[in-house]
């Protein structure tokens, strides 16, 4: 536990010094929140809908930080640590691989939670936001989406042969998911054909689940989405642990 605490403190400091997560996980969700509120915020989510557009989009925007940390941050970090033989240095210590990976998962989880708190505070204070659904189930869904997205990151970071490939795969996952899964560009304004195509992305399912929780829609509508992200999370976590390599 002491090792986890010290590594979390020091690796966390290094991450903050790096600044990129600050930009992509903290600043970007705030900017997108403000833009959605200004452009579409007060309009109803659909004609005759009891929710405003922003109420419906809140869950989607909250995943921007998860996506940045899980699909971009984690793969790049793991492959970079491996490429530069930092993992090899850990290999000749008593450290368990899960310790170091767990520390970094915790750092990205903290970024995501910080981002969630920040956009919530901004929305509540400045845009009079009230979540129609339950915060508790929203938080549960949020953690589930995090688990699933981080596991994808671990898998990419773990299996990519080098940091260049990891960077390429991360970009291929990150940008389409960020733009098309509904995290930034709202799902609801996409044409139906496009919606069907983007339904294949795990984050689209995650966002569907978050929306259900945020709007207080009966959970029965999201069984499929929940199942998809849980299965992805379990499979990717299992694969990345069994195929983990230090070098």
């Amino acid at each position: 536990m002491k090792a986890f605490r010290i590594l979390l403190k020091n690796e966390g400091k290094l991450s903050i010094r790096g600044l990129d997560m600050f930009i992509f996980a903290i600043c970007m969700p705030v900017v997108v929140t403000i833009l959605i509120v200004i452009i579409l915020g007060d309009k109803p989510a659909a004609e005759g809908s009891p929710y405003t557009f922003f109420e419906q989009s809140f869950g989607a925007v909250s995943t921007i930080a998860i996506c940045a940390g899980g699909v971009m941050g984690l793969p790049l970090l793991i492959s970079d640590y491996r490429h530069r033989k930092i993992l090899k240095r850990f290999q000749v210590t008593p450290a368990h691989p899960v310790l170091l990976l767990g520390v970094h998962a915790a750092i990205y989880a903290l970024y995501s939670l910080a981002s969630l708190v920040l956009i919530t505070v901004i929305s509540v204070l400045f845009f009079n936001f009230r979540m129609p659904g339950s915060w508790l189930s929203f938080l549960g869904a949020y953690l589930l989406v995090m688990f699933s997205m981080f596991s994808i990151g671990f898998l990419v970071g773990g299996l990519a042969p080098d940091s260049k490939t990891a960077g390429m795969i991360a970009s291929l996952l990150y940008f389409p998911m960020l733009i098309f899964s509904g995290a930034t560009l709202p799902y609801e304004i996409m044409p139906v054909g496009m919606q069907k195509a983007v339904d294949f992305m795990p984050l689209t399912q995650g966002i569907a689940l978050l929306k259900t929780a945020a709007l207080g829609v009966p959970f029965e509508n999201s069984y499929k989405a929940a199942a998809v992200i849980i299965v992805i999370g379990v499979i990717c976590t299992g694969l990345s642990i069994s195929f983990f390599k230090w070098e």
Binding site: K2, A3, R5, I6, L7, N10, E11, K13, L14, R17, G18, Y81, R84, K85, I86, K88, R89, F90, V92, T93, P94, A95
Partner: peptide, 25 residues
């Protein structure tokens, strides 16, 4: 173990790398 080309995390300080090493034992 001391490796020929010790490689360290970006921007890590001497104190931090020592702490990170110490805490593993």
């Amino acid at each position: 173990v001391q490796f020929q080309e010790g490689s360290y995390q970006d921007r890590i300080t001497v104190k931090e790398i020592c702490e990170e090493t110490e805490c593993l034992y």
